[in-house]
Amino acid sequence: MEVLSSRVLVHPRDPDVTTAFYRDTLGLAVYREFPGGTVFFLGGGFLEVVGRGTGDTRPDVALWLQVRDLHATLAELRTAGVEPERGPQREPWGLDEAWISDPDGVRIVLVEIPAEHPLRADVRTP
């Protein structure tokens, strides 16, 4: 299988509220808009808010978003009215994480990779 592009799709209960959350509250850049949906940039991927969902339960999925400065990001989000569900903490796997949710309860894991973490290692051969 050859994958040329990918994106995560969410089907919100209220598309206008969820689109505004990702666009205005989180400040994600819009990649494109089309009748019934909006696609946002997510670093190396995309998030598409499309259609209308009918589920009443929290989906068993999370968005993993790496940020440069977790504490500064949380301060910025608090100013926009977003309180974290779980504040920043160092995980056993060595990443600093905090959790927020979108209007439908989709968990968003905000991640800062510490300077000493192996994900920051230069894997190029000298």
Results as ranks from 00 to 15, higher is better:
28 L>Q: 01
29 A>N: 07
99 W>Y: 15
68 R>D: 15
50 V>P: 00
26 L>H: 05
33 E>P: 07
45 G>R: 10
35 P>F: 11
30 V>R: 00
66 Q>H: 04
89 Q>K: 10
119 L>R: 13
52 R>A: 12
102 D>L: 07
93 W>H: 09
38 T>H: 08
87 G>M: 01
72 A>Y: 03
79 T>P: 00
11 H>F: 15
100 I>Y: 06
77 L>A: 07
23 R>I: 01
98 A>P: 06
114 P>E: 01
20 A>K: 05
12 P>I: 11
67 V>K: 10
16 D>E: 15
45 G>A: 15
22 Y>I: 07
75 A>E: 15
95 L>T: 12
32 R>H: 10
110 L>I: 09
16 D>V: 09
76 E>P: 00
12 P>A: 11
51 G>P: 06
108 I>S: 05
99 W>F: 15
84 P>L: 02
77 L>Y: 15
50 V>R: 07
110 L>P: 04
86 R>H: 14
115 A>Y: 02
52 R>E: 15
114 P>Y: 01
1 M>S: 13
41 F>Q: 12
30 V>G: 08
31 Y>M: 03
90 R>I: 13
110 L>R: 02
62 A>Y: 05
21 F>L: 05
106 V>N: 14
81 G>V: 06
87 G>L: 03
114 P>L: 05
97 E>L: 14
123 V>P: 00
50 V>Q: 12
5 S>N: 15
114 P>Q: 01
97 E>Q: 15
49 V>Q: 02
72 A>W: 08
94 G>C: 05
57 T>A: 14
70 L>M: 04
39 V>K: 02
89 Q>I: 00
42 L>M: 14
100 I>G: 04
33 E>M: 01
102 D>Y: 08
62 A>S: 14
87 G>F: 03
101 S>Y: 00
37 G>Q: 10
66 Q>K: 03
103 P>D: 08
8 V>G: 08
51 G>Q: 09
116 E>P: 00
81 G>M: 05
69 D>I: 03
123 V>M: 12
1 M>K: 11
84 P>Y: 03
2 E>R: 12
126 P>Q: 10
57 T>R: 15
99 W>R: 13
24 D>G: 12
126 P>E: 14
66 Q>V: 13
6 S>V: 00
2 E>G: 09
59 P>W: 08
91 E>W: 07
31 Y>Q: 12
109 V>F: 02
24 D>A: 06
121 A>V: 01
119 L>H: 12
107 R>V: 14
17 V>N: 01
24 D>Y: 04
122 D>A: 09
43 G>E: 00
2 E>K: 11
13 R>C: 02
8 V>I: 14
82 V>Y: 05
105 G>H: 03
17 V>Q: 15
107 R>M: 10
103 P>N: 11
62 A>W: 00
44 G>W: 04
14 D>M: 03
82 V>K: 06
28 L>F: 15
77 L>D: 04
55 G>R: 13
67 V>T: 06
20 A>S: 13
108 I>P: 00
57 T>V: 10
20 A>T: 10
116 E>G: 03
44 G>L: 10
106 V>D: 02
